[in-house]
Amino acid sequence: MDKMEKEAEKVDPREKESCLSYIKMMSAGVLFLGVCSIGVGIAVLVLLDGAKYPLTSGTGIWMSGNHIAFGCVGIAAAMATNEITQMKLLNGHYVVSILLMTQGYPMATSIQGLIVCANGDEKCGSNSDALAALQGVQVGILVLSYFIGIASMVLHNKKKCVLHPEWKYRRGCCGGSSCD
């Protein structure tokens, strides 16, 4: 722990605070997107009225778990005062950033639902216009969360010596130190 505290002393507190501020803003945005996604998912389920796959998948509801985890862990990391707790939360936030990129199936079903309903296909039931709009919103939520997830990963990697001083002792694929 002494080694960790010495590393933390070398980090510019203003730069770390700036990075944590960005993480907090990104996390709040994705948390909001997750809540919106749940609302869109519920609205899709309410408006189904005879609709068939891909709209019955409830994509907006179950995919929001990653969004909510990203938001909660990021906000908690930015607000943590204990250095060790903050380090663990920042590592978790980085992992959840990666998990945001694993939402190919929700993206595929949302795009498929958008196209099917925009063409007025019978799979959309009697509410094809409303369902097309909701699927469009869902695609937008996913695209925004992808971009924010990528921005988060870039921030974590570019500022790894500030946000993750413990990574200095990790070895990459070629055996080099990561914070040299």
Rank of each mutant, 00 (worst) to 15 (best):
N127S: 07
T59F: 04
V154Q: 09
L144G: 08
L142F: 12
C117M: 04
M4H: 13
C19Y: 08
A80R: 04
M63Q: 14
H164M: 12
V96N: 03
H164S: 08
I23K: 01
I150V: 15
A133V: 15
I42T: 11
K158W: 13
V35R: 07
C124I: 03
N157I: 11
P13K: 07
T56R: 09
D2F: 07
A80K: 04
Y22C: 06
Q112M: 15
K10H: 07
L131F: 02
I75T: 04
G50I: 01
S145K: 04
K16L: 15
L55I: 03
A28T: 09
L144D: 05
C179T: 10
Q138P: 01
V116S: 11
L99F: 14
E9H: 06
E9D: 10
N119T: 15
G29N: 12
I38G: 07
H164N: 09
Y169L: 03
G65C: 05
V30A: 10
S97M: 03
A80Q: 08
N82S: 08
A76G: 03
I68G: 00
G74H: 01
L90P: 05
I38R: 06
A28F: 15
Y22Q: 13
D12V: 08
W62G: 04
I98D: 04
N127A: 08
M1F: 12
S128A: 12
V44W: 00
L134M: 06
A78R: 00
N119S: 13
Q86R: 15
G41V: 05
N157R: 12
G71C: 05
Y22A: 08
A51T: 01
V143K: 02
K24N: 12
L155G: 09
Q112H: 11
Q112T: 15
L90S: 03
L163P: 10
V40I: 14
E17L: 04
C117V: 01
K3H: 15
L144H: 03
G58I: 01
N91W: 10
M4V: 11
G39T: 02
A69P: 01
K158M: 14
T59L: 01
L33D: 09
D121V: 02
Y53T: 03
H156K: 01
D49E: 15
V73S: 07
R14Q: 13
G74T: 01
M1V: 07
G39M: 07
D12F: 13
M4W: 14
M26R: 12
D121W: 05
D12E: 11
V116T: 15
Q86H: 07
I42H: 05
H156W: 02
G74A: 02
T85D: 14
A132M: 09
G113L: 06
A130G: 03
Y146G: 03
E15D: 14
S126K: 14
G113R: 05
D121E: 13
T109M: 14
R170F: 15
K16R: 15
T59E: 04
A77H: 00
K88I: 14
N119C: 08
K159V: 06
S18N: 12
R170P: 00
G50Q: 02
A78E: 00
M1A: 12
E166Y: 13
A80W: 10
E83C: 00
G74W: 02
L134C: 01
S37F: 11
V139Y: 05
V139I: 11
G140H: 02
P54T: 03
V30N: 07
M25W: 11
